[in-house]
């Protein structure tokens, strides 16, 4: 295999691994109106990167840990009623992004590809990255299968689900942990600022073609894979930045789905 083929193949493998998980996870983000929540978790990932570099540890697990910590903090803070949920998210989202940037800037003698973290660097994924993506991806998928029914019941009607004895609390918490894990593995592919796009756009594109939640989740995975394939090809063809190209193809697919949905 030539060098060119090799890095493209790795990029494709990584992108597809992320897109497959993003389908069902993103569907829930859309159904539960948690797009801003996803953004907030993603922004905190930069703080994780800084921390990982400071500790000289492997970055992916540290980023996952920081996202989990922020998710737990958010759950705790949302119990108070003084500030509206989105205000709180805004504060934490931009606060953690700014803190991450400042900490990275303060670290002396560090040559860091900041743009790579912010917008993704899929063409430089290593075999280790791919292993992380598929390992965590399997974990996220297994978790989603386990909590699918209670989480969906909770999404449709919280109190009804609770009265019917669904494990609503564990499912909610579990979902946030899965989201945190997903962000840690997909950061390298599309970057901190574009992760939410990969969650939301394929799911929204799948809406018009689905009759059940499960169909929508699977179709979202498919849409995500198409976006990754198309984006990488475009990036190769016209020398575009890969992460943004993937997102743009996803937006294109969404527009097509809108047109199709209007025709229906």
């Amino acid at each position: 295999m030539t060098g060119l083929d090799d890095f493209m193949l790795r990029a494709l493998l990584a992108g597809i691994g992320v897109a497959l998980v993003a389908g069902p996870l993103g569907s829930f983000v859309v159904w539960r109106r948690m797009a801003y929540f996803g953004d907030t978790l993603a922004h905190s990932a930069l703080l994780g990167v800084a921390l990982g570099l400071l500790l000289q540890a492997s970055i992916t697990p540290v980023v996952a840990a920081v996202c989990v910590a922020l998710a737990l903090l958010l759950v705790a803070l949302q119990r108070q009623r003084r500030l509206a949920g989105d205000t709180l998210l805004g504060i934490l989202s931009h606060g953690s992004l700014a803190l991450g940037l400042v900490v990275l800037a303060l670290m002396e003698g560090l040559r860091l590809d900041l743009l790579g973290y912010l917008f993704g660097d899929i063409l430089s994924v290593t075999r280790t990255d791919i292993a992380w993506i598929y390992l965590a991806g399997l974990l996220v998928s297994a978790g989603l299968v386990l909590m699918w029914q209670p989480l969906l019941a909770d999404t449709v009607h919280q109190e009804l689900a609770q009265v019917e004895g669904a494990a609503v609390g564990p499912a909610r918490l579990g979902f946030m942990l899965l989201l945190a894990l997903f962000i840690a593995i997909s950061m390298k592919v599309v970057g901190i600022l574009l992760i939410t796009a990969l969650l939301i756009i394929p799911a929204a594109s799948a809406r018009y073609f689905a009759r059940t939640p499960e169909q929508m989740a699977l179709l979202a995975s498919l849409m995500g894979c198409l976006a990754v394939g198309g984006g990488l090809s475009a990036s190769l063809q016209w020398d575009l930045p890969a992460g943004p190209a993937v997102v743009l193809v996803a937006v294109l697919l969404f527009s097509l789905s809108l047109a199709w949905g209007r025709r229906e």
């Binding site: 859309v30 159904w31 029914q149 969906l152 019941a153 999404t155 449709v156 689900a161 929204a204 809406r207 689905a210 009759r211 059940t212 939640p213 169909q215 929508m216």
Partner: peptide
């Protein structure tokens, strides 16, 4: 944005 049939709703 959540596609749901009566059947799927009842199964929840």
């Amino acid at each position: 944005v959540l596609p749901l049939t009566v059947r799927r709703f009842l199964a929840l």
